[in-house]
Design a protein around this nucleic acid. Structure first.
Lengths: 213, 213, 213, 213
DNA sequence: TATGAATGAGCTTTCATTCAT
DNA sequence: CATGAATGAAAGCTCATTCAT
């Protein structure tokens, strides 16, 4: 009779862990590591504060777990791009578009990255998981560049790491500093039109660089 | 005989204010707004903690003052570039190099910018000073682009704001995320060689975009 | 064996709350709202300071809770008087005596009342509990006065609110200003003889007023 | 040419002292001793904070000076009443009215009195001035009561100190607790009508007591 | 697994007071 | 007489964390 959930509030470890992680991601993204509050995370997750320590040990460890989950997600999204099956020019354009849209859809990623770097990535250093993920996208991008070069459409000597960082940088600076930039330039940088223009500009810049003239 | 400083430990308001501002800039840059400690700022400035409130009223107001001072500095450095007197291509190259070297020489600027944006630039909104500085570099850059276009060396239709953001973004992402990037790519991004390569790459990307093919 | 308090130092929320409330009453009574110290309240209650905020949120809220508890007590004492069952003259005399002895036994009440009024009763305004208690003693006193008038012993037209305030006022001024009054008149106002004389005087004044001549 | 006030902001010690005293009276009356702020007193007086210490030595001493000035004023007002020249019944009525109106016109007196007593009148104990003023009104009131008794209109055995305290108490409790009383009784105690009623009631109570029946 | 109660250390801010001129 | 600059002590309050069940 009493078997199975007697309580609507489930004793479901998986779910509790996930709820904490989700709440923590939002909280860290919104306030940074130092500004985040364990209390607010517990409230957001609708769980007791003590559970956070039960599952994640400390605020710092929780932060690391959030970083790992966020990296795992972006890496897996990158791998779904299937750049290897595309024409090189299309593949580069696709990567620019993906980066742009991913950053817009996942604004937490940007602030979490900033937080991680503010702390000199000391959290990541402790993580084996993140190191292992080691961005296979770089290899993929290298392959795309090589194919383009062989086909005569791309210039040679392009370092895929540099290019990858540049693509991200063009999107990242615009989006992560949109508040100060809007304030200084007196422009709404996030209107649909402005977004389209930025993506167009980014594509022009990157293709202007890789394409042989 | 009684002329001039009789005591090095000043009853010198100018100096006290400046000492606090300098210490605060370092502290906010190193720890973010939430992570910064008023006590440490006082210690760094070698002044009584109470004096910080005497001069700056609150932690938030102090943070705003730091932002203002930081913006004032970069704007005045930009104005010393004299881009208007240069050949367009040289001017663009000069701006890329300046941005790169300025960010390296002033790493606080990067983290302070991130902090300001984490707080949705609510500090800057309150500042009339920053709004007024409104980046005259944009006008200058617009002028350079126009001169290049007229001379037939630059492509047309380039938005100086987009270009300015792109130049900054190429440097910013690399430098402000150097810890996570180094960790992920397993490369030292700050070796002299790596630095030179990055600047070369940035210049290629930007010139590859603006130069007519 | 394991039943009942295993530890005197309680993990007993009821007790903790009550201990804080008691200590706070003493502290606020002795020093006023501004002069009261949260630290001293914690020490008096032999509890961690943080717990005060855990249960009462802020110094102001704690003060309100103290006021509420103090009002609840005096109202419940008033209701135990059973004035309705007494001869009108005895009832009035009883109320005068009760007021006098209650103020002497609960000197905190007087200073807390003064503090509440110094702050323009802004705390009470936020309290629904106090408003509701609305002094049923007034209705009782009105009934007593009416019975006395009908019996021909009391004068008519006496407002029970005015009378209630007068009875309290005769005791309150004497007791709450006993220090300055003693200093100015050079008399010990709190000797047993002085106390008896004051109560006699008060009774004479009030009965001299209500009794028909 | 340069003799006499060269500066509009007068170096006028008398005036400065008086300005501080006035500002302090308001501040202490509004916030109590602990709640009063030296800074606000300086601002109210439009003078430098340091001057307060120059003239009054400390916050406590300033509070004492305020008490002394307040007592001096009420004593001198009492002496202008000329009760000795009046018919006894008129004199008592006059004293009731005076007390009522004085308390209404000088609300600071009430809160300052409460503050002084909260601190167990330790300030007054140090004051020789206040002791000396020793309320000559008591002697006057004794004389009035004696004349009434001899004329057959007043009852005998009335202690002038008790009566004086009672008169003050009837007014004081009503006025100094008007905020809590209004809140509890849901009545505006300070409307012109309510004021007139209270004075009528007070006069009835006091005369009902002293007049022979 | 889950939770309410409890805590020590430390945070920003305030305050009366003093220094130096 | 008058003032701006400076300070030590402490205040209210917060925070990550642990205890006890």
């Amino acid at each position: 009779m009493t078997t199975m959930e007697t309580d609507t509030r489930a004793r479901d470890p998986q779910r509790s862990r996930a709820a904490i992680l989700k709440a923590a991601r939002e909280e860290f993204a919104a306030h940074g590591l130092a500004g985040a509050r364990i209390d607010r995370i517990a409230t957001r997750a609708d769980l007791n504060k003590r559970l956070i320590y039960y599952y994640f040990n400390s605020k710092d460890d929780l932060f690391l777990s959030v970083l790992e989950s966020v990296y795992t997600e972006i890496r897996s999204a990158e791998q779904r791009l299937r750049l290897l099956e595309m024409d090189p020019t299309d593949a580069v354009r696709r990567l620019v578009e993906f980066t742009w849209h991913y950053f817009i859809a996942h604004p937490e990623f940007l602030t979490l990255l900033a937080s991680a770097n503010l702390h000199h990535a000391r959290h990541l250093e402790r993580s084996t998981r993140v190191q292992e993920m080691n961005s296979p996208v770089i290899q993929t991008l290298g392959d795309v560049l090589e194919r383009g070069r062989k086909a005569g459409t791309f210039r040679g000597g392009v370092d895929p790491v540099q290019l990858y960082i540049s693509i991200a940088g063009l999107a990242y600076f615009y989006l992560s500093n949109k508040y100060t930039l809007s304030s200084i330039f007196g422009r709404d940088l996030m209107s649909p039109k402005a977004q389209a223009e930025r993506l167009g500009h980014m594509t022009d810049v990157i293709l202007g660089y890789v394409l042989r003239t």
